[in-house]
């Protein structure tokens, strides 16, 4: 048996990307295949969040080691004009379904002793049948396996890093705390009214 392909779902990519440890996927020196729907999920990001740029940089750095794989569900999604796509709700579990579709195309062509790893977090993946040559591994199991293989000193430390790494996203002005007023614990209305750019509401 030999590990030939790593197929990560969006969850593990986002968790590892969040702590800048996407390099852990590179350790196996084998192709990392990302389905089109998974790529779409991780690259769209949230406005203002650093997520998409982290993955774009990783894709560029790894060159052809990382390949985006077309799937039926991904091609159908892309066939929808972009302006309409933005208004549509996505199909539930689309990323996972695209991995399952891809696994169906390779399950009969993989050599008897070749194996692939599917990395996942979404519970939907647990119920999917990827065939006999594809092992499913959650992000946490992946970290535990890397710890036992001596690649990382501690899975728990990386998990702690994930918890410590909140994303810093520019807040909507209405989400921001009110300015503090010197020496007093004002409520938000007083703080808001005291902003220098506020017009005097009294007639």
């Amino acid at each position: 048996m030999a590990l030939e392909i790593v197929i990560p779902d969006s969850g593990p990519l986002m968790s590892l990307g969040r702590i800048d440890r996407l390099d852990l996927l590179d350790r196996f020196n084998c192709p990392i295949l990302i389905t089109d729907m998974v790529a779409d999920e991780i690259l769209r990001g949230k406005p203002g969040a650093p997520d998409a740029s982290v993955f774009e940089a990783w894709f560029a750095k790894r060159g052809n080691r990382i390949q985006t794989i077309e799937t039926s569900i991904g091609m159908m999604w892309k066939a929808i004009p972009e302006d309409i796509r933005a208004t549509l709700k996505r199909v539930r579990d689309a990323g996972e379904t695209s991995i399952w579709q891809f696994s169906n195309t390779i399950r009969d062509t993989m050599a008897a002793d070749d194996e692939a790893l599917v990395l996942f977090e979404d519970a939907a993946v647990k119920k999917m049948d990827f065939g006999p040559h594809i092992r499913k591994l959650s992000t946490w199991s992946f970290l535990i396996a890397l710890e036992r293989a001596g690649v990382i000193p501690s899975a728990q430390t990386l998990r702690n890093d994930m918890m410590a790494a909140n994303r810093t996203i520019p807040s909507d002005p209405f989400d921001q705390p009110s300015p503090k007023m010197a020496g007093r614990d004002e409520d938000w209305i007083a703080g808001y009214d005291a902003r220098p750019d506020m017009d005097d509401p009294t007639p």
Binding site: L3, F28, S141, V151
Partner: peptide
């Protein structure tokens, strides 16, 4: 991530089963 939380951990038995299946592959590849 926005509130500084990692995804929940899967059950220990599940983790051990996954690791047991994948670790030989990972060790061999490394």
């Amino acid at each position: 991530a926005d509130i500084g939380e990692a995804p929940p951990l899967p059950p220990k038995a599940e983790v051990e089963a996954e690791v047991e299946a994948a670790l030989p592959l990972i060790r061999k590849r490394l």
